[in-house]
Amino acid sequence: MSDPSTSRPDLDDNTNVITDATAAERENHMFTEGAEPISLWVILGGALIVLIAGGVIGDSFFDFKNLVRKDYVRTSAPGAAGAATLPKPALDAYLKVGAKAYTACAGCHQPGGEGNAAYPPLANSEWVTGPSLRPALIILNGLHEPITVAGKSYNGNMPSMGSGMDAKQLAGVLNYIRNSFGNKSDTLISLEMAQNAIDLSKERNGGQMTVKELDAKYKNDIEGTALDPNTMVDPKTLLPVAAAAAPEAPAAAE
C-alpha cells in the first residue's frame, strides 16, 4: 500500500482519504469538558470506603515500632492443649485406644498375640480375623469348653471381660487384635458396630460363650456401618470429623 498523498500528489485529497481511511474519516470529534453532576450516592460510597480504610490504618500510621498486628498471629490453636485434639486417621486412633485396653489380654494371649501352650494365639487366628461378631462376644462374655485355633485344640477358661467395657474400648480392642500381630482387615469396627455387639450380648443374659453357640448363632459380622481406616477421627471421641468428607477421601464405605 503506497501512501496516496506522495505517490499521487495531483489527486484530490478528499477522494483519497475517504476511500482509503474510512475508519478515520467517520470518526467523531472529541468533546471533553462535561460538567454534569455526580450522583450523591457515588460520593457517599466513596466516603464509606474512606471511613473503612481509615479504620484499617487506625493509629498505626505513625507506629514504626510494633511489628505484629494485635491478635493477628495466634500462638496456638484455640482451646486446644496441643496435638491431642488434632484429628488422626481412624486406624491410628483406634489402635491407640485398643493397645491400651489390650494390656488386660496380654497376660494370657501374650503382648505379641502369639499365645502359649494353654492359651490360644490371636495372630493368624480365624476366630479373630473371621466374622467380627464372634470375637466381640468372646471378649464380652468369656469362653469355656474346647476351641480349635489354627489347627490346635485348647481347653481353657476365659473369663468375661465385658463388665464396664464401653463401645469405644470394645471397638478399640477389636480393631487392635484384628490389625496387629500380622492380622489385617480392610475396614474397622465402628463405634456403632461395637455398641450393637454390646446390645446383642446383653440380650443373651450372661454366661460364657461356647464354640457351639458361637458357630450356631453368631458366625457373622457385627451389624452396622464399618469405618474406612483412613477416615479422619477425633482421637478422643473416635468419631469421624465432619469436614473429613473431602472429595477424594472416600467416606466410610459399605
Binding site: A53, V56, S60, D63, F64, K65, N66, L67, V68, R69
Partner: peptide
C-alpha cells in the same frame, strides 16, 4: 502478619482500599 513494621502493612491495606 509478617514481622515488618505495622504501619507498612496497615497503610498498604488502607491504600488498596482507598
Amino acid at each position: 502478619g509478617a514481622p515488618i513494621p505495622m504501619f507498612l502493612q496497615n497503610t498498604g491495606a488502607a491504600a488498596t482500599m482507598l
